[in-house]
Design a protein around this nucleic acid. Sequence first.
DNA 1: ATGCTTTGCTGCCACGTTGT
DNA 2: ACAACGTGGCAGCAAAGCAT
Length: 255
Amino acid sequence: MLRQTFLHIAGIGQETEAALWKEGCNDWEHLLDNFNRFSVGAADREFVRRQIKSSIRSLETRNHQFFTKSLGLKEAWRAFPDFRESCVYLDIETDGGQSGSSITTVGLFDGKDYTCLVRGHDLENFRDIISRYSMIVTFFGSGFDLPVLQKRFQDIKFDQIHLDLCPTLRRVGLKGGLKKIEKELSIARGEETDGLNGYDAVLLWRRYERLGDESALERLIAYNREDVVNLERLAEIAYERLHEDTLRRAGLFLA
DNA sequence: ATGCTTTGCTGCCACGTTGT
DNA sequence: ACAACGTGGCAGCAAAGCAT
C-alpha cells in the first residue's frame, strides 16, 4: 500500500490521509493529476506536491533511503511488498554481552537462501552483504540487533528501511516474544531447535569455543536459521493485518 | 485582514518490554 | 540480570483553513 500512503509527508497524519482516501484519492498519481480537488489538511500544499513527486520518483528509482526517512520505523511495514525482493531477514546471536565485540553469529535470509556469518570466520563480510539490501526485517532489531551491529561496525550507515516486527505485530494485538507469537500463529519449529532461546545460543557458543564442539555451533546455526526464516511469514502476517486494520480505521472496508 | 478552529508536531516523562 | 529502546499520554506550539 505504499502508493496509497500520504502520512509520510510532514503535515499529513492519519486523519488527513483517511480523508483523502474517502474522497476517492487512491494513490499518488491521482492526487497529482487532481491536485486542486483535494484538501491536504493543515499541510503546506506546495510541499505536499513536491513530496508526492519525490515519492513517485523514489519508488521508480528504488531509492529506499527516501522511504527510510519519511516512513520511519512505525510505518515501514507499508513498504514491505514493494521492497520485498531486496529485503533481508536478520538476527544476531551474542556471547552474552551487549558490546559490539559480543556478536558471535549474524543470520541473514533473503527469502531464498540463508547465510550465517560466524565470528572468527567470515563476520567481516557483513559490511558487503548488508549493503546490497534496501530493507531489513528483524524482531526487536531496533532495541537489540541493529544497535549492537552498529557498535561492531561503526563505519556502516544503516540506511535501509527497517521493519521491526516486535512493535509492528503489537499494533495488531500480537504481543510478547518471538517464540510466543510463533506459537500463537502455529508456526512450528524443528525438533532439534524447539525449546531453545537466545540464552541457549549464548551457552552453545561458549561450548563451541571452549571445547571446540562443532556440533554445538551447528545447533546454534540451526536455531538462528529458524529464527530468521520464520521472520518472513511473520512479516507477511504483520502486513496483511495492519493493511486491513488501517483501512478499517479509516472507515473503508475490504471487498 | 483577523481571529477561531483544526490538525499535527515536538518534547517530556514514566513505564513496559525485549533480546542474549 | 542487564541495557536499550519504543510507547503512550499529555501539554504546549505552529501552521493552515475557514468564516467573518
